[in-house]
Design a protein around this nucleic acid. Structure first.
Lengths: 355, 355
DNA sequence: TTGAAAGCGCTAACAG
DNA sequence: CTGTTAGCGCTTTCAA
C-alpha cells in the first residue's frame, strides 16, 4: 500500500514554522506556555499545510483517542432493525451523540453488546483494548449492568449511563448519569387523563429488567393516589413486545370495572392495546383513551394518531457525550447527574370518558 | 490519567510465549512462515493473557486502521432525523454495514459530509487524516460527487459507491460499485400495475441530482413502451419531499386523461400522492393505485398500507463493506460492480382500475 | 517559554 | 522459519 506521500505531519509543520515539534504539539492541544506570536506563527503553518493530527499517533503517545463508544443491547437493537417498525432510537442517539461528538472533535462508535453470552468480558474487553475509547455511553438495560460497569472500570474507560439513577453497588465509580424524567412523564400522562375526567386509568408496565419501567409505574401510582383513586386491578406488565401488550390490554379490559384509559409503556404495547380494544368492540378514543410512552414516527400514522410521551433521546445522548468530554478535559466532576424533562404530545387517542 | 497498568501488549505475549515480537505479530496477522507449534504456543499465550492488538498502534506502524467510514449527506440525514418520519435508511445501513464490519474485525464510523459548504475539502480531508480509514462507503447523492472521489483518491482511501454505475470522468479510480437494481424495480412496479389492467400509469421521478432517479424513470418507460403504451403527460418530477410530491401528484391528476395508477419515487411523495388523491375525491385503490419506491416502516401503517418496492439497503451496505475489505486483504479486483435485486411488496394501495 | 530525548505498541525491512 | 532493527506521529518527560 503506497503510504501517503502527501501526509502532513507535525514535523512538516515544525519545519515550516521553524519551531520544535513540542511547540507545535502545544499549539495543537491549546496548552499554555506558548507566546502568542509563536502560537500564531505555528497556527499559520498548520492552516497553510492543512495539517490534521493523526488520532492513532495521539492515542499511541498516551493522549486521547477522541473516540466514544455507544454501547447498545445487541439482541434488541438487531431485532428492532429487522422488524422495521420505525423505532428510531438509534437515529436519535446518533443525532444527539454524533453531532455533539463532532462539535468537540470526537467520533461516536456504535457497538452492540451481547450480555447473554458468556463472552461478554472477552467481547467488550476486546473492543475496549482495540479502540481504547475515551468514554462509553450505556443505554438501558446495560446502564445498570454491573458486569459491564466493572469491565469499563477495569479498562479505565469513563462512562455515562442513560436511564440509571442511584442504587449502585459501590464497587464501581458512579460515572455520569443522564436520565429522562420517566416518573414525571408518567405523572404528566396520568394528569392529562385525570384532567379529561378519567378515574380508572390502567397502566401497562415494561419489564422489570428496565429500571425506568418501575419509575413510570411510580409516577402513575403517585398521581392516582394524589387524586385519591385506587390502583388495584389497573396494573399489568408486559415486556415491550406487541404480544405482551395485547395480553396485558386484554387482561385490563376483561376486568369487571375495566379502565376508561390505558397508559402503555411503549409504542408496540400501545398499538396492541388499540388492537385489543377494537377486538372488544371499543372505539378509540370514545370508549377508551390510550397514551403511549414512546413517540416513534409511526404513532402519527396510526388511526387515531397516538397521544404520546416524547422522550428527548437526542438531547440525552448529547448531554451524556458533553459531560463525558468535559470531565475528561477540565477534570470536572466526573459523576454529575442530570435529569431531562419529557413532554406529552396530545393527539387523537385521548378524550373525555363516556360515562 | 492513570495509564492502564493492566494493558496487555505484544511484549507481554512475546515474553510469555518466549518468542520475538515479530513472531507474535505474524500470528496475530495470520501470516505464513510460522511453524504450527509456534503458532499454537503464541496463540495460547494470547488467549491466556487476553491480548488484543491496539488499533492505534497497528495503524501507526503502517498497517490497517480497521476503520471504515460511511459517508452520508449531512443536510438530508439530519433533516430526516429531525423530521422523525420513520426513514430507516441509517438503521438499515448500520445493520448491514456494521455487522459485516464486526465480522471482519473492522468498525464502521458514520460521518456526515456537507457538500454545500466550501469546507468540503477541509472537512472531509480532516476526517481522513485524523482517522485514516481503510475504506469509505458513499451513499447517494455523494456516490457521484467527483470532488469527494478526488479527495478520497488523494488520501489513498479506497471507496465503495452505492447507487453509482458507470460514466466516471476517468480522473478517479472506479472503486467498488454496489447498486440496487432501480431500473428493474421500476419495471417490476410497472409490470405489476400493467398486470392489474392499468394503462395510464403515472410516474413521479426523484431529483436529477440522484442518478437512480433517472434509472427508475428508464425502467418505467421501458415497460410502458414494451406494452405499446404512451408515456406522454404521465411523468412529473419531485425532489423527494412531501410538498414536491403533492405538486407532482396534482399535476398528474389534473390532466385531461389522468393516470389510474401512480408510481412515486419515494415514500414521502407517495404519501403526498395519497393525500392529493383524497383531496380530489378519489378512493385508493379503487380510483387510483399508488406504488411507493421506499418501503420504510410507516408504509405499513398508512390507510391503505402502501404497495412498495423494497430496497435491500442492509445487504447493499454489507456487500460494499465486504468487497472493500476483500479487496484490501486479498488484493482482489478493486473495482467490482454488483447489482442487487429489489422486490415488490404488495399491499392495499394497488388494485385493478375501475374503467 | 522553548527544545531535545525517550518511548507509546506495533509492523516492515532486513538479517540470520 | 525466526529474530533484530528501525521507525510510524505524537506526547511525555526533563533540561535549557
Amino acid at each position: 500500500m503506497a503510504r501517503r506521500r502527501l501526509a502532513v505531519t507535525i514535523k512538516h509543520v515544525a519545519a515550516d514554522a521553524q519551531v520544535s515539534l513540542q511547540t507545535v504539539s502545544r499549539v495543537i492541544n491549546n496548552e499554555p506556555n506558548v507566546r502568542p506570536e509563536m502560537r500564531e506563527r505555528v497556527q499559520a503553518s498548520i492552516d497553510r499545510l492543512g495539517y490534521v493530527p493523526s488520532i492513532a499517533a495521539q492515542r499511541m503517545s498516551g493522549s486521547r483517542s477522541y473516540l466514544i463508544l455507544a454501547l447498545n443491547d445487541r439482541e434488541r437493537t438487531i431485532a428492532d432493525w429487522r422488524a422495521r417498525q420505525g423505532t428510531d432510537w438509534v437515529d436519535q442517539m446518533l443525532l444527539g451523540g454524533m453531532l455533539e461528538c463532532a462539535e468537540h472533535g470526537y467520533r461516536l462508535i456504535f457497538e452492540l453488546v451481547d450480555t447473554h453470552e458468556d463472552h461478554l468480558e472477552r467481547e467488550l474487553g476486546a473492543a475496549l483494548a482495540a479502540l481504547q475509547p475515551d468514554g462509553a455511553i450505556l443505554t438501558p438495560p446495560h446502564s445498570d449492568n454491573q458486569e459491564i460497569l466493572r469491565i469499563l472500570t477495569r479498562h479505565h474507560v469513563p462512562y455515562a449511563r442513560i436511564g440509571a439513577l442511584g442504587d449502585e453497588d459501590g464497587h464501581c465509580p458512579p460515572g455520569v448519569r443522564v436520565s429522562m424524567d420517566d416518573e414525571g412523564a408518567a405523572r404528566l400522562a396520568t394528569r392529562h387523563l385525570l384532567a379529561l375526567g378519567h378515574r380508572r386509568i390502567g397502566f401497562i408496565a415494561g419489564p422489570a429488567e428496565y429500571r425506568l419501567a418501575g419509575w413510570r409505574v411510580d409516577g402513575w401510582r403517585a398521581e392516582m393516589t394524589a387524586a385519591a383513586l385506587p390502583c388495584d386491578g389497573l396494573l399489568e406488565a408486559g415486556d415491550f413486545s406487541y404480544a405482551s401488550g395485547a395480553r396485558a390490554a386484554r387482561a385490563l379490559l376483561d376486568r369487571e370495572a375495566p379502565p376508561t384509559a390505558i397508559i402503555a409503556s411503549n409504542d408496540q404495547m400501545a398499538l396492541a392495546t388499540i388492537e385489543a380494544a377494537r377486538d372488544a368492540g371499543l372505539d378509540i378514543p370514545r370508549d377508551l383513551s390510550v397514551v403511549s410512552f414512546d413517540n416513534t414516527p409511526l404513532v402519527r400514522f396510526t388511526t387515531p394518531p397516538l397521544t404520546a410521551v416524547d422522550q428527548p433521546i437526542s438531547e440525552t445522548t448529547a448531554t451524556a457525550v458533553r459531560l463525558l468530554i468535559q470531565a475528561q478535559r477540565d477534570g470536572a466532576d466526573p459523576a454529575p447527574t442530570v435529569v431531562l424533562p419529557m413532554s406529552l404530545v396530545e393527539r387523537g387517542s385521548t378524550a373525555a370518558p363516556r360515562d
